[in-house]
Amino acid sequence: MDKLDLLGVVTVISLFVSFFLAFFLLTVKTTHKSSNRIFAFFLIISAIDISEPLVSLFSDGPSNLGMLRSTVSFLQIPVFYLYVLSVCYSDFKWKPKYFLHLIPFLVVNALLTPRFYSVDLASKFDFIVNRQNMVELQFTHWLFHLQIMVYFAAIFLLLRRAKKLYLENNSGGDLSSYQWLFQFTGVLTVFYLVVILKNIFKFSDYTYVSDRIKIGILVSQLFIICWYLYKALNHPGLFRNIDSRLKLVADMVLEDQKTEPETLNDDLLKLKKYMSDEKPFLDPALTIQDISEAMNVPFRELSVLINHQLGQHFYDFVNTYRIETAMEILRDPSKSKVTILEILYEVGFNSKSSFNTAFKKHTGNTPTEYRKSLQMNTL
């Protein structure tokens, strides 16, 4: 099978998988339609971007449609950024300002209009043949690379902020969904770095290297899409419970440093008594807002108290009480037949992985190891 045939076969398979998954995301019944639609759009744009080997079979030379197809790549990363934004925040809504992400795409196409879009076929051929000397293509080349670096940096900062907000305001669930989204973004970052490498060879004297890398990109894209489908079906919730209007505690502290130490001490005593007496941590979906309302303590003060003054995130603060309660159960001889799974649900956890992680962080042992050590000590 020659190079062109291999490219064509891999391209067809990639296009089929991309469009099939996009169709699934657009038609599946879910409460998270915005995220699904944005990612479906990302898949469609990606499919258009990789369709060049097939388009070349039906084209006798450079065309306006072909050039427009190649510039669609400027929409990929901005759309993925919006997807991550929609996944992290439950109150995500489409805003007019998001259209600003179209600027690189529009600028590039406007730049290409005088010497490509508006000229005859012969001039288009000359433009492509001399592409290494064309300022427009050089600018497009470097702008695309800059866009990749800027957007992925913004995405990682967004994920970092979302994780901190989650830890400061929520106690339910675990961080596996965040880890997956972070991993997926990391894989895409590597993928686009390889794309950059391909483009460097494309505008050099070693274009055959670019073609070989292109085959690897198409194959890897198949695996990335399939991996996404598998993970997305197993993590349908992701975060989706973070309000974008929430502020990080570090920002609150900078804004307001007027809280008196006596007030903080009173609130701390009140908080500890409430946690011990009412045991709100048994609720897997407990949030810092729930405790604020129940104690009649302003959310801002409570958040600063736990996440700043106590030096631990709300997520860890609540889990400490859950682990202490779990340890009491494990030490109780009358409950020796209660399984670890039953205990974790009883104390407020909703996944075995998050329970094991929190328990080992607090005690240095897994729940099973802790129970075995207690049994050994009683012998």
Rank of each mutant, 00 (worst) to 15 (best):
N170L: 12
N199D: 15
W180R: 11
Y206C: 03
L197G: 08
A232L: 02
A162T: 00
G173R: 09
A162I: 00
W180Q: 13
A154M: 13
S176C: 02
L167Q: 14
T207K: 14
V209E: 08
A153E: 03
Y208G: 02
Y166E: 11
L193S: 08
T189Y: 13
L218Y: 06
L167M: 14
Y151R: 04
L157N: 04
N234Q: 15
I213D: 06
N234Y: 06
V150C: 11
A153L: 15
S210D: 01
I217P: 03
D174I: 00
K164S: 10
N234K: 15
N169S: 13
K198H: 15
V190M: 12
S220Y: 02
P236W: 03
L233R: 06
S177V: 02
I196E: 11
N170D: 11
A162P: 01
S220C: 09
L233M: 11
A162L: 03
L238M: 12
L181Q: 10
F152A: 04
A154V: 02
H235S: 05
T189W: 11
S177I: 00
Y206I: 03
F191Y: 15
S210R: 12
G216V: 02
D205K: 12
H235I: 09
I196W: 05
A232C: 00
K231S: 11
Q221C: 03
F184R: 08
R212W: 12
Y206A: 12
K164G: 02
A154T: 00
T189P: 01
R160G: 09
D211Q: 10
G216Q: 04
K163D: 13
L197E: 07
I242R: 01
I213N: 08
S210C: 09
V187L: 15
K202G: 13
T185G: 09
Y206P: 01
S171I: 05
C226V: 07
I155L: 05
I224M: 09
L229Y: 03
I215W: 03
I215T: 06
L193Q: 12
G237A: 12
L157H: 00
L157M: 13
V209M: 14
K164C: 10
R240I: 00
Q179R: 15
L197S: 12
Y230H: 08
F191N: 14
Y192C: 05
D243F: 09
S176H: 08
K164V: 08
K202N: 14
L167T: 03
H235N: 13
K164Q: 13
I155Y: 00
L218C: 03
L165F: 02
L238H: 05
R160P: 01
A153V: 07
R161K: 14
I155K: 06
